[in-house]
Amino acid sequence: MDAVSRLDAAVVTCRACPRLVAWREEVGRVKRRAFRDWEYWARPVSGFGPPDAPLVIVGLAPAAHGGNRTGRVFTGDPSGDVLYPALHAVGLASRPTATHPGDGMELFGVRITVPVHCAPPANRPTTTERDTCRPWLARELRLLRPDLRAIIVLGGFAWQALLPVLLAAGWQLPRPRPAFGHGAHVVLGDVRGDRRVHLLGCYHPSQRNTSTGRLTPAMLRDVLWHGAAIAGLPHGQGRGGRAG
C-alpha cells in the first residue's frame, strides 16, 4: 500500500469534530426517501485519484446524500453530475457518470480532495471544523508534492482553506494574498525557488451555481482543460475531447 492509500485509510477513521460526526451518522440513519435501500457510508470521505497526480482538484466537503452516502467524493450528488461529465469530456475521467465505488470510474492524472472530509449540516462547515481537518489536507498535499503542478480550487471556501496549507508547505504566497475568483490564476514558487505550482480558481459546481448559470459546463471544461494543460497531461491537450 502506498503512502497516499495509507492516508486515505486513516482519514475515514477520524472522529475529531463532534458536530460533524453526529450529523453524518444521523443522515446515514434517517436517509433520504430516494435512498432508503442504501447502506450509507456515514464516515469521513477520503480523496480520490492516483497518488502521483500532477493535477489536484480541491472541493468543499462531501454532500450529505452524495459522498456521505456512497463513500466517494463528488459521487451520487448533483455537483458530481456536473463535475464528472466535464472531466470525462476533457479526457481526465474514464466515464461521465459517478454512482458508487466500483462503478468503473477511473481518474487520469487528477486527484480530487476536500478541506473538510465529513458532510456538514447545510453544507457549511465551521471555521473550527475547517481548521481541525486541515492537517489531513496538508499531509495529502505533502505526499502529492513531488508530482504536483497545478491545483484547481472549486469555490471561495476551498480557496481560503487551501492558502494556509500551501504556505505551511513552503509555497510562497504573494501579498496581499490572492483573492478567489472564477478564472483566477496564481503561480506560486517555493522557498527554494526551484518549484512552481499553478493555482486556478473555479466556481463550485453546486446545484445553485449551475442552475442559475453562474457556472456552465463550458466554463468548467475550460478551467479543467487549462489545469490539465499546465500539468502536462496529454488528456488536456484538446478542448472538449480526449487527446493522446
Rank of each mutant, 00 (worst) to 15 (best):
D2V: 02
S5E: 14
L7D: 02
A9Y: 13
T13M: 09
A16F: 00
A16E: 06
C17D: 09
P18G: 08
V21T: 10
E25W: 00
R29D: 10
R29H: 12
F35E: 11
R36D: 08
W38D: 15
P50A: 06
A53S: 14
G59L: 06
L60N: 07
P62N: 09
A64D: 13
G67C: 04
T70S: 13
V73D: 02
D77R: 01
G80Q: 10
V82A: 08
V90R: 04
V90S: 01
L92W: 03
L92E: 03
A93K: 01
A93V: 03
S94Q: 11
R95E: 10
A98E: 08
H100D: 08
F108V: 09
I112M: 07
V116W: 01
H117C: 11
C118Q: 12
A119W: 03
P121R: 14
A122L: 12
N123E: 14
P125L: 08
R130V: 15
D131H: 05
D131Y: 02
T132S: 02
C133T: 10
C133P: 01
R134S: 08
R142N: 00
L143V: 11
L144S: 07
L144M: 07
R145P: 05
D147A: 12
A150P: 04
L154E: 13
G156Q: 12
A158C: 03
A158G: 15
Q160W: 05
L163N: 02
L163R: 04
V165H: 05
L167Q: 11
Q172M: 11
R175G: 05
P176E: 06
R177Y: 12
P178Y: 05
F180E: 08
H182S: 07
G183K: 12
V186F: 01
D190V: 12
D190M: 03
R195H: 06
R195A: 07
V197E: 00
L200S: 01
G201P: 00
S206L: 07
Q207D: 11
R208E: 11
L215T: 10
A218Q: 14
M219V: 02
V223G: 00
W225Q: 13
H226V: 07
G227E: 02
A229E: 10
A231M: 00
G232S: 09
G236V: 01
G236S: 03
G240H: 05
G241H: 15
A243T: 13
G244L: 06
